[in-house]
Amino acid sequence: MIAKAKTLAKENKLILFALLAYLLALIFRPDVFFKGLKTTGGYLKEMIEILPAVFVISGLIDVWVSRETIIRAFGSGAGLKGKLGAVLVGSISAGPIYAAFPVTQALLRKGASLANIVVILSAWAVVKAPMLVVESKFLGFRFMLTRYLLTLPGIMLIGYLTEKAVNRSHVLRAAQSGVDGIRDELIAQLPGHNCGSCGYKSCGQYAEALAEGEAEPDLCRPGGGEVAERLREIL
């Protein structure tokens, strides 16, 4: 019971900290409390508009887009074309950078290179067609153009350097921590026919049993030896 409460507090420490900060503000600076609440309300509105769509898209990528496709488009062998594709994916997406994390994480699990993940993240944040117009309206066309021409090679270099400095398998492990993460990763490897030949109703239930350690990784008949091998790697 106590141990459970402890992990719960650890997992939610950020929100607990925020609650504490607001409580202090309410006692000592009520004006700040109400202003902060109002600003946060505005943020939340933006988040609610965007996040459900973002997570639905990341879920669809997981289930539908094959590993091979992602490796071809965004893997380390994709070269400059992959980089340009990454800029494109980033720049047509909407929302603040935290909305980009779930989608890019799904791409990473499917085999996108770290450099391209970084490029997508940065482009998601910086390169936005409607924003170009807004920026040049307020700060001038020259300002906007100069900033973008400097930023584009910049984000590619940042991607390249990040890939050099960080070990991809470590990042993947962080991306998969927790049973939920492992289950999602397992689902991504299964064919998704929900044929039931493994003895479970759906690929999802089989993945769940695998993640809990209740099933063997060689039960998927349509996937055969190749899928069993990949499942074993994850487990």
Partner: peptide, 8 residues
Amino acid sequence: GVLALVGL
């Protein structure tokens, strides 16, 4: 949590 802290 993050948004609430930034708002404050």
